[in-house]
């Protein structure tokens, strides 16, 4: 039982971080589909940073910086070139994969798994038989800070206004580009921490380490109705589902490929169910 709970917390931590970051861009009116890429690049850079410095903290900072640089590039190029954010988001995912492969290939001579020995372990608090990592506590803390930021700060007010009507902002003397940039940078910050957690917790970097968590993050926001209060239960639903699929993989003989398909399938089903609920609600409203 405690191993299942540990598994759930382990999966919940990155999803919650990613979703919180993506919620900020969502509130500012953009669908950030570059989350996968941001998580991936941070996963590689944080493990490189940690292996050089033998410090989880410095590794995490490496990861955060790399993801924030990438989201800066994404946001600035998109606004400077007046490009379509979906396409540039896809491009960012490709770019991150490309950069990571090239780096692992150039430095470690492999395009696959990179393992580091003598890595420092992530601190965990033992509560009875459950391990709670500092990253999980950080994720909860940051979620609360984000809530306060969105509801009770000038920046939050501007982000919400930007999400409602970005063009009207100009007449208030507020730069829409700047607000979008800030929201993307914050999103990068959160994805950075999530990426660090993924690779540092695993002790290695594998291509595709984010394993669709960026997309899950988007669906979590959708499921929570863009309401920060429902972010934890929504993220928890995904974490439980994925933990269950790992559990069943252990006790049944399902082929691994099919097991790998379960998170996407589950995300899809949730996405469709939520849209059915929203659709029916709107029908009655009319």
């Amino acid at each position: 039982m405690s191993s299942i709970i540990n598994n759930i917390l382990n999966i919940l931590t990155p999803i919650l971080l990613i979703a919180t970051g993506a919620l900020i861009t969502d509130k500012a009116g953009s669908l950030n589909i570059a989350l996968e890429g941001l998580v991936t690049i941070s996963a590689l850079f944080s493990i490189i940073g940690a292996s050089i410095s033998h410090s989880i903290l410095i590794g995490t900072i490496f990861g955060i910086i790399s993801a924030m640089i990438l989201s800066y590039i994404l946001s600035t190029l998109t606004s400077k070139l007046k490009a379509n954010i979906f396409i540039t988001g896809l491009a960012t995912n490709l770019l991150a994969t490309g950069i990571c492969s090239i780096i692992t290939f150039s430095i470690y001579g492999t395009r696959g798994l990179v393992t580091f020995k003598n890595l420092v372990q992530i601190h965990k608090i033992h509560l009875f038989t459950i391990d709670i990592s500092l990253f999980f506590l950080l994720a909860i803390l940051l979620l609360l800070i984000t809530q306060v930021m969105l509801n009770n700060s000038a920046l939050g007010l501007r982000i919400r206004a930007c999400g409602e009507d970005p063009h009207a902002l100009k007449s208030y003397g507020i730069s829409r580009t700047k607000i979008k940039l800030i929201s993307f940078m914050l999103s990068g910050f959160f994805c950075g921490i999530a990426g660090s957690y993924l690779s540092l917790n695993l002790g290695s970097y594998v291509p595709g380490i984010s394993a669709g968590k960026g997309w899950i993050g988007l669906v979590v926001i959708y499921l929570a109705g863009s309401n920060i209060k429902y972010l934890i239960p929504a993220a928890l639903a995904f974490a439980i589902a994925e933990a269950m699929s790992i559990y069943f993989q252990g006790i049944t003989n399902l082929p691994p490929d099919i097991v790998l398909a379960i998170p996407s399938l589950f995300t899809l089903i949730v996405m469709v169910i939520v849209s059915i609920i929203i659709h029916n609600k709107n029908l009655i409203k009319r």
Binding site: I87, L95, I102
Partner: peptide, 22 residues
Amino acid sequence: ITSDITLIVQSCILFLTTSVVL
């Protein structure tokens, strides 16, 4: 060289092709 550099080139093309400015 690794063929992954095409990924980077492709992403750059994607970035640039949706540019309204260009």
